[in-house]
Simulated scan of single mutants.
Amino acid sequence: MTDPRRLLEEARNLGNQELDFLKKGDVDSASDLAGQRQELMQRAFDVLDDSTRNSCADQLRELHEQLDAIMAEGRKLKSSLQADLGKVRNTGKQFKGYSMGAGIPQGNRGLYHKRG
């Protein structure tokens, strides 16, 4: 039987690495670590009983705070991605407006006849 305190400590270490990857913007590596962390926590909760629950309370609080930090970093990444997508969308609209003002034909319009 594995010690839940050890499993929770390993999960906390993986959480720290995951948070570092998120701060660097490496979402793929963070996602891989999140899966590993989830498995460790599940194994820890499976073997957690009443006698060890009280001794693991501090670790569980730390994990909860760490999860809040990971979620906050994820929200920051999401909002920056949304802002970047909005800029790209606006840039496309601007270019379309410039081409229409300059008289540049859009796409295939006017280049081909409908009949043979």
Rank of each mutant, 00 (worst) to 15 (best):
A34P: 00
Q42L: 06
M1Y: 12
G101K: 14
R61Q: 10
A30Y: 00
Y112K: 09
R109I: 04
L81F: 15
Q17S: 11
I104E: 03
A44N: 06
A11W: 00
A30H: 00
G86P: 00
K24M: 09
G86M: 11
G35E: 05
G74K: 02
R61W: 14
S55M: 04
P4A: 03
M100P: 03
G116A: 11
V47R: 11
L33P: 02
L67Q: 10
Q82F: 11
V88M: 14
L85A: 05
K114F: 12
K78A: 01
G101F: 12
K96I: 14
L22C: 02
G110F: 09
V88H: 02
Q94F: 14
I70S: 05
K93R: 09
Q94I: 12
P105H: 08
N16W: 05
K78N: 09
Q42H: 14
D68T: 08
N108Y: 09
D32W: 00
G25R: 09
Q38G: 11
A57H: 13
E39A: 15
A44K: 01
N90L: 11
G15I: 00
N108V: 08
N108G: 07
A72S: 09
D49I: 05
Q38N: 12
N16C: 03
Q42F: 07
Q38R: 14
G25C: 10
Q82P: 04
Q94S: 12
D20P: 03
Q59H: 05
G110P: 03
L19M: 03
S99Q: 03
R6C: 02
L60K: 06
E18Y: 02
L81P: 08
L77N: 03
G86E: 13
L22V: 05
N54C: 08
D84K: 15
D68Q: 13
Y98K: 07
H64S: 08
P105G: 03
T91S: 15
R6A: 04
G74I: 01
D20L: 06
L63R: 02
E9G: 11
A72Q: 12
C56Q: 10
D26N: 11
A44R: 04
F21M: 12
E9N: 01
K24C: 04
G35V: 04
A34L: 14
V27A: 14
G103P: 04
G97C: 06
N90Y: 13
A69F: 02
G97Q: 15
Q59V: 00
Q106A: 08
R6T: 05
D58A: 15
M100R: 09
M41Y: 09
Y98Q: 04
T52M: 02
H64R: 09
K23V: 05
L8M: 10
F45Y: 13
E9P: 01
R115D: 13
E9M: 06
G35K: 09
L60H: 08
D58S: 15
R43Y: 07
R115N: 13
R75K: 15
S80C: 04
C56Y: 06
Y98A: 13
Q59F: 12
G92R: 13
L67G: 03
K93E: 10
E73L: 05
L67F: 14
R43G: 02
G107V: 05
R5Y: 01
N90C: 06
T2A: 15
G97R: 11
G103K: 06
M100L: 11
A72M: 05
Q59G: 03
P4N: 02
K76D: 10
D49L: 01
L22Y: 01
K23Y: 00
D58Q: 15
K76E: 07
Q82R: 15
